[in-house]
Amino acid sequence: MDHRLLEIVACPVCKGKLAFDKEKQELVCKFDRLAYPIKEGIPVLLEPEARIMTIDEGR
């Protein structure tokens, strides 16, 4: 994931910053506890496509 892209993308729900989870290939919003998938190198920033993170993951 290009770090320049991380500077401009935002969570579509709260407009907050997203963190890159390299292992799971996801962009994570810790505030909303949502993880957006990255498919074929392209972030899918659609709320219906997001995975709800568990309480343990949100820490």
Rank of each mutant, 00 (worst) to 15 (best):
residue 1 M to T: 08
residue 2 D to G: 04
residue 2 D to A: 01
residue 2 D to M: 04
residue 3 H to N: 14
residue 3 H to W: 10
residue 4 R to P: 03
residue 4 R to D: 15
residue 5 L to P: 08
residue 6 L to R: 06
residue 6 L to P: 08
residue 6 L to W: 04
residue 7 E to W: 04
residue 7 E to A: 14
residue 7 E to N: 15
residue 8 I to A: 06
residue 9 V to E: 04
residue 9 V to C: 07
residue 9 V to S: 08
residue 11 C to G: 09
residue 12 P to E: 02
residue 12 P to Y: 07
residue 12 P to L: 15
residue 13 V to A: 12
residue 15 K to T: 05
residue 16 G to Q: 03
residue 18 L to I: 08
residue 18 L to E: 01
residue 19 A to S: 12
residue 19 A to N: 10
residue 20 F to C: 02
residue 23 E to G: 06
residue 24 K to Q: 12
residue 24 K to N: 08
residue 24 K to V: 00
residue 25 Q to W: 03
residue 25 Q to H: 10
residue 26 E to G: 01
residue 26 E to Y: 02
residue 27 L to T: 03
residue 28 V to H: 01
residue 28 V to D: 00
residue 28 V to Y: 01
residue 30 K to N: 10
residue 31 F to N: 13
residue 31 F to K: 14
residue 31 F to H: 07
residue 32 D to V: 05
residue 33 R to D: 09
residue 33 R to Q: 15
residue 33 R to K: 15
residue 33 R to Y: 01
residue 34 L to W: 00
residue 34 L to G: 03
residue 34 L to V: 05
residue 35 A to T: 02
residue 35 A to C: 02
residue 35 A to N: 05
residue 36 Y to F: 15
residue 36 Y to P: 01
residue 37 P to N: 13
residue 37 P to W: 11
residue 37 P to I: 10
residue 38 I to C: 03
residue 38 I to S: 02
residue 38 I to V: 11
residue 39 K to G: 01
residue 39 K to L: 14
residue 40 E to D: 12
residue 41 G to A: 09
residue 41 G to L: 13
residue 42 I to P: 00
residue 43 P to E: 05
residue 43 P to V: 09
residue 44 V to S: 02
residue 45 L to D: 00
residue 45 L to P: 00
residue 46 L to M: 15
residue 47 E to H: 06
residue 47 E to M: 06
residue 47 E to A: 10
residue 47 E to K: 08
residue 48 P to W: 00
residue 48 P to I: 02
residue 49 E to W: 04
residue 51 R to G: 00
residue 51 R to N: 01
residue 52 I to K: 15
residue 52 I to H: 09
residue 53 M to V: 03
residue 53 M to A: 09
residue 54 T to F: 05
residue 54 T to H: 12
residue 55 I to M: 09
residue 55 I to L: 13
residue 56 D to K: 14
residue 57 E to K: 11
residue 58 G to A: 15
residue 58 G to Q: 12
